[in-house]
Design a binder for these strands. Structure first.
Lengths: 109, 109
DNA sequence: TTTACACATGAAGAAGTATTCAACTAGCCG
DNA sequence: CGGCTAGTTGAATACTTCTTCATGTGTAAA
């Protein structure tokens, strides 16, 4: 095996690099969700949702269980919440920067 | 414009989803580096390195300046460090989980 | 057991990203 | 200025990842 660590990191970030997977994680960070709930919230095809859930499962980020009829997913690593938060902070700054740039251009042009 | 936020987040994570870019950010999180230093540390072609630096620049994560002859890069958003740290923590757990699984398999098989 | 529903999987074409090569630009020194 | 070195860019091909569709599996109710 022995995958270099920086490659594992890159793979990990790529796992997060999809709009549907981000939404899934954010919903699951709030509380556990059944598949049909995710389906209602996310607006993609059922089979696509399954694929994305499979990606997250393979990465070890979420877990599946069966509960009185339907399949319920939960976040396996609570730290995911911290990560999403850290990302949100940076993104906020990046977007502010962009807005600032736009302002400056408007003012000078 | 008006890109949904979860899409911006996904894009942001994809920006980090490349081994070379991770290494660049980690090196720059430590201290500023000239391009030739990155080149020595990372072992990819110069033009490839430039491409990856361009990706990070476009994302607004790093900055370029010229300093007595050579081009020096620095991290634009100090919070990147927090993010990389949060990722490291999760990754550590994920890898531990995997190891544990391997152990269990070995013990039971 | 048969039917029905909810979810998962495999495979294939479409879409996106990486790596490489060749050509270009910016700054520096003779 | 002319040529040199360091870094960047664009474009082409190779590689990954997405999305969709057809099919498979599991559970529950009839």
């Amino acid at each position: 095996m022995a995958i270099p660590l920086y490659q594992a990191k890159a793979e990990f970030f790529r796992t997060l690099g999809h709009p549907a997977r981000i939404r899934i994680l954010e919903l699951l960070a709030e509380r556990d969700h059944a598949v049909y709930e995710l389906l209602l919230a996310i607006d993609i095809e059922a089979s696509n949702l399954s694929q994305q859930l499979a990606v997250l499962r393979r990465a070890g980020l979420v877990m599946q269980r069966r509960e009185s009829g339907d399949v319920v997913y939960s976040v396996n690593r609570p730290e995911v919440r911290d990560l999403l938060l850290a990302a949100r902070v940076i993104l906020r700054h990046l977007i502010d920067d962009q807005d600032q740039l736009r302002e400056d251009l408007k003012a000078s042009g």
